[in-house]
């Protein structure tokens, strides 16, 4: 035992040193550049699709989001980036009230989808989620056939009365998701039998089958290989013609490729929001620069 420890020590030591250095750097950065009272950049746009002001989220007494205000424009792709635990997923989940399922989660602030207050007690959350769809990190098709996966949303919302209409919705959605050619001969095969990338596109087809106005994507490519990722990214660009999209991602290249505007979150605060190009070429805030140049993350 003793020898093993002795032998391990040098290696451990280097790791520790590296980690300590990184932590110090991060701390120094935070000290040098205290949080701005206001987000730098241009978080607001004219005539937004979603208008979010002073959003605060608490898990019990733990505040996860501190006064975030931003707009998501019509047919815009907004990407939310930031280190792990910075609250970007939590923020995204406020936008269709998926946080409701967590008992200890409390959301404050003013969140509007066009003129609709998202947290209006009179608002039916079912109706809201039909307008704001969500694609999750891990592909999660229902253990049903491909057809039933896509048809599920239209069915529960009664969007199609006839088999013919439903068939059409399924086909259009699968076409939009770029999956139709691959699955048209096996629509009644289980959706879980598809590859990871196909499953994720199936989930996107399922989401757009209810014709939402906004699609939220929570790290949709983190479980996929590069080729599948490329396909999804291409798809996001195509979808932005008809939908408003908010995407959380860990990949800065992805944010740079797919989004119009990028928001950088740090420890529950929105540090900077700007045109994607500006964020990645001339970041206004030091924290943003440190993150995108890979000094911490």
């Amino acid at each position: 035992m003793e020898t093993a420890q002795q032998l391990d020590k040098p290696a451990l030591g280097t790791n520790d040193a590296a980690r300590d250095k990184a932590i110090n750097e991060q701390a120094a950065m935070t000290q040098d550049t205290p949080y701005p009272d206001q987000t730098v950049g241009t978080p607001f746009v004219d005539d937004p699709k979603m208008r979010l002001r002073d959003v605060e989220v608490f898990y019990d007494d733990n505040q996860a989001i501190h006064g975030v205000s931003l707009d998501i424009g019509k047919n815009e792709v907004v990407s939310l980036i930031g280190p792990s635990g910075c609250g970007k997923s939590t923020f995204l989940r406020c936008l269709n009230r998926m946080n409701d399922t967590i008992d200890i989660c409390k959301v404050k602030g003013s969140l509007h989808l066009e003129s609709q207050d998202l947290y209006d007690p009179k608002l039916d959350v079912v109706e809201l989620r039909a307008r704001v769809g969500m694609v999750f990190q891990k592909p999660n098709p229902f253990p049903k056939s491909i057809y039933d996966n896509v048809a599920y949303g239209p069915r529960i919302h009664g969007l199609a009365n006839k088999k013919y209409d439903l068939d059409e919705i399924v086909e259009t959605s699968l076409r939009k998701a770029g999956l139709w050619e691959e699955v048209k001969d096996r629509l009644h095969a289980p959706g879980t039998g598809l590859s990871g990338g196909q499953q994720q596109r199936l989930c996107i087809a399922r989401t757009i089958a209810v014709s939402p106005e906004v699609v939220l994507m929570d790290e949709p490519c983190s479980a996929l290989d590069p080729i599948a990722t490329a396909k999804i990214e291409e798809l996001i660009s195509e979808l932005s013609e008809s939908y408003t999209i908010a995407i959380v991602t860990h990949s800065m290249q992805q944010a740079a490729r797919v989004s119009h505007r990028t928001a950088y979150f740090h420890l529950g605060r929105l540090v900077e929001m700007n045109d994607t190009e500006t964020v990645f070429t001339k970041p206004e805030h030091d924290l943003t620069e440190a993150y995108i140049t890979g000094r911490f993350g």
């Binding site: 079912v126 769809g133 999660n140 229902f142 599920y152 529960i156 209810v210």
Partner: peptide, 15 residues
């Protein structure tokens, strides 16, 4: 039952 299935259904607006 995996929570992802529940989330998927709720995300689509299932009650």
């Amino acid at each position: 039952v995996p929570p992802s299935i529940r989330q998927a259904a709720m995300g689509l607006g299932a009650s």
